[in-house]
Deep mutational scan, measured.
Amino acid sequence: MASQGTKRSYEQMETDGERQNATEIRASVGKMIDGIGRFYIQMCTELKLSDYEGRLIQNSLTIERMVLSAFDERRNKYLEEHPSAGKDPKKTGGPIYKRVDRKWMRELVLYDKEEIRRIWRQANNGDDATAGLTHMMIWHSNLNDTTYQRTRALVRTGMDPRMCSLMQGSTLPRRSGAAGAAVKGVGTMVMELIRMIKRGINDRNFWRGENGRKTRSAYERMCNILKGKFQTAAQRAMMDQVRESRNPGNAEIEDLIFLARSALILRGSVAHKSCLPACVYGPAVASGYDFEKEGYSLVGIDPFKLLQNSQVYSLIRPNENPAHKSQLVWMACNSAAFEDLRVLSFIRGTKVSPRGKLSTRGVQIASNENMDAMESSTLELRSRYWAIRTRSGGNTNQQRASAGQISVQPAFSVQRNLPFDKPTIMAAFTGNTEGRTSDMRAEIIRMMEGAKPEEMSFQGRGVFELSDERAANPIVPSFDMSNEGSYFFGDNAEEYDN
């Protein structure tokens, strides 16, 4: 993207840094990872977990959730003011799984939030270390993106479920800051804005008074975040219109849905970061690795190297396929839920299948599930090659597409044709070009129609051997075009429920 120079890199967003050079960025990201790792080690000690239990991804998720809940100030305040039966607002906890007599047992633990905050700050040299908290939120978000298709949420806001490739980060909490905003897809931002506008339509006082002023500035800020994701002048001009509207209503909703559809071809720039579970960072720190000293990046080879040398386990339900569970977590670790499966298959070195073909449910185990038949197995999170994460949407291309997802959002900077089903997408653009945004709409449609099938995206960008740390010898991959490109292809993934 041309304006790259004016933006802070995501590592800076990730670490609240002012302008830093590459070495400083690597050190501050490393410091953040160190903090998460030290916190995780301490929690495993508190909970008396064995090494194996500490490497269980379900335990990692519970521990991450506990610290996120302990620092969720708004919710904590709300819980104190609106006490609900049987919930102690000062405590947080969740299921911890232990191996007892050759069987997995679930144990519900409860801790004072104050105590968890103390352990977290102690692991982070006394700081609140917001960057580390956001990092864990993005890992949870990436896992949700890989596990669930947001059909219901899309339909509720009037969008087409086939636009799911635009929904990265749709389950990120509001408090995820600049680093969170960077990884949100165009569809996620559109959905947040539509929800806001709908509230304004239904509630006369939404934009009024002292609160209304705050609401208005939040609305304009979200519009600017979305505008910054678009790469064409016409899309940005249309966002200006939406932002400046005196009284946002149905016309703005129409414009936003139009823009979301246009992003299936004229893709937005959305950041991709490899955020790993805390149970990967903990053992690495415990083994003596100093992330701050060595430096770390979320968008280069580092996460690949770390996963190459990590042992992570997962509980497996009786009829689940461990290899499929591994694929789910591998995609989440690489922030690749909406990437082209052919690119992923090449990088991973084994075939990556669409969601609907995987015999696996989510990673988390519900409290009512029976533990008797639970097994555990090693997650295979290694890769054959590594590639640089991208934040450009890439230019655009036609490809055989599917009944489910009709476009992709690249996660890796790797040369390819970008699949999208042009006739299906263009069919949504018939007729409606009147109104105050008509010239911009016409211009956007013209650009979409001009998108050429034979153009290559990320020209000359390749993948790298894991021994090639400096990215000196790019390998331009070859793809098996007979395979499906979309992950949520004609899909039956479970729906995400809060």
Rank of each mutant, 00 (worst) to 15 (best):
T45W: 04
N250M: 08
G268M: 12
M137S: 07
Q311I: 15
K77Q: 14
Y78Q: 04
R342Y: 06
I41K: 00
N250C: 09
L358I: 02
A493K: 07
V109S: 01
G282A: 14
D128M: 00
Q364K: 03
D51Y: 02
M440N: 01
A366K: 10
T396W: 00
K422A: 00
N205Y: 01
V299A: 05
M238N: 13
E292C: 01
K98T: 00
T62V: 04
F458Y: 12
Q58S: 05
A251T: 12
F412Q: 12
S482N: 15
M447Q: 02
R117A: 12
S359I: 02
I25F: 08
G300F: 13
M137V: 07
S482R: 04
E81M: 13
T147S: 06
L381F: 05
S438W: 04
S353A: 01
Q308F: 09
I253C: 12
F346I: 15
N309Y: 05
Q58E: 05
A181C: 05
A182C: 08
Y97S: 15
M43Q: 07
M331T: 06
M222S: 06
V463R: 07
D340L: 15
F230N: 08
N473D: 08
P95H: 12
M331L: 03
A131T: 07
E455V: 03
I225S: 01
E64Y: 02
I197T: 14
A373P: 13
S413E: 09
E254S: 12
L418N: 10
R384N: 00
V67A: 03
M137F: 10
V476R: 09
R382L: 04
P477Y: 11
G295K: 13
M426D: 09
A260M: 10
E18Q: 08
R261W: 15
N321S: 15
S176R: 04
I301H: 12
R243D: 05
R391Y: 06
Q4W: 01
A493D: 10
Q42M: 05
Y487V: 03
A403P: 01
Q409H: 12
N125Y: 06
S9A: 15
D145V: 13
R204M: 12
M447V: 15
R391W: 03
L143I: 06
A442C: 00
G158W: 07
I301E: 03
F489T: 10
L358Y: 11
M238S: 04
